[in-house]
């Protein structure tokens, strides 16, 4: 379902004129405003360095806006807001972020304990059983005793997904989730998200072929971190000029053996 008319009452996550920079002078995000409704699927598209990961960290309350307001279920996501312990726990329980580099979120001695960590903290019954179940779903059951740092890049990515999904969040933030995944794991993720209809998902990617599997609404960021487009994904993908402006597609010269040449449009992944 696409929430074309999202009222503040419906919005799960709201960005209102948000700007953010890392303190080295430049702004990473500038005047970013959008709403995300419960159960909605939003794909954030943009080139390298356009602020996609920063956007997710702001949504996860890991970074705080320099100006503008980020709200989760109507409450401000700022230092003061997250200082309230109960609210912070509730927020962390209902919003899960899978980092682009999964090493960042793995800090337990074994795969089993890593997955069980979240459910245990949330007081869910039988966290070990849950861990086994999620390890099985993501093809990690034979690694259950291994140390997470000893896994391959793809296995770590699957483990990071299992850790977050085992907590059953209401909002899932995926930062370039398929960067290290093999085709089987990508297929599993797409199927899983398709089945979890209550889950709101915000995914960042440059891969346009994948984008169509992960959402119906697109937020396209310019390289200066401003919103170029917010609307139906299929409309964004059909807008060649938009994709070129956002550096999501490029044209280059093709030379054929018969001497003819022409320019084609290319992107990360073939969405056509």
């Amino acid at each position: 379902m696409i929430a074309t008319e999202i009222t503040p009452e419906m919005a799960m996550l709201q960005f209102d004129s948000v700007a953010f920079g890392y303190g080295d002078g430049g702004r990473v995000l500038d005047d970013v405003s959008f709403d995300l409704a419960a159960g909605e699927r939003l794909v954030v598209l943009g080139a390298n360095g356009c602020g996609k990961s920063t956007l997710l960290k702001l949504a996860n309350g890991l970074l705080f806006a320099d100006s503008g307001i980020v709200r989760y279920q109507g409450r401000r996501l700022d230092r003061a807001g997250l200082a309230a312990k109960d609210w912070r726990r509730e927020f962390r329980a209902s919003v899960g972020l899978v980092f682009q580099h999964p090493e960042a979120m793995l800090f337990n001695p074994s795969v089993g304990e890593e997955i069980a960590y979240g459910p245990q903290r949330l007081g869910k019954p039988n966290p070990e059983g849950l861990a086994l179940e999620w390890a099985r779903r993501l093809g990690l059951e034979r690694h259950i005793e291994r140390a997470p740092f000893a896994l391959s890049g793809g296995e770590k990515q699957r483990l990071a997904l299992a850790c977050v999904l085992a907590c059953e969040p209401r909002l899932l933030l995926l930062d370039e989730p398929t960067a290290n995944l093999d085709p089987r794991a990508i297929g599993w993720l797409i199927d899983h998200l398709a089945g979890a209809t209550q889950l709101a998902v915000m995914t960042t990617t440059q891969n346009l072929a994948l984008a169509v599997e992960l959402g119906q609404r697109a937020l396209v960021l310019s390289e200066a971190g401003r919103i170029l487009f917010d609307g139906l994904l299929e409309v964004a993908l059909a807008d060649t000029e938009l994709l070129v402006e956002a550096n999501l597609a490029h044209r280059h010269l093709h030379r054929h053996q018969d001497g003819t040449q022409h320019r084609h449009l290319h992107s990360h992944g073939d969405w056509s």
Binding site: R92, F99, A104, F107, R121
Partner: peptide
């Protein structure tokens, strides 16, 4: 940078919630 990213990862998973 690793240390900073790891701190954010732990924060994101609620590691520090009971520690202040």
């Amino acid at each position: 940078l690793h240390a900073e990213a790891l701190t954010q990862g732990m924060q994101s998973r609620g590691f520090f919630d009971d520690r202040d």
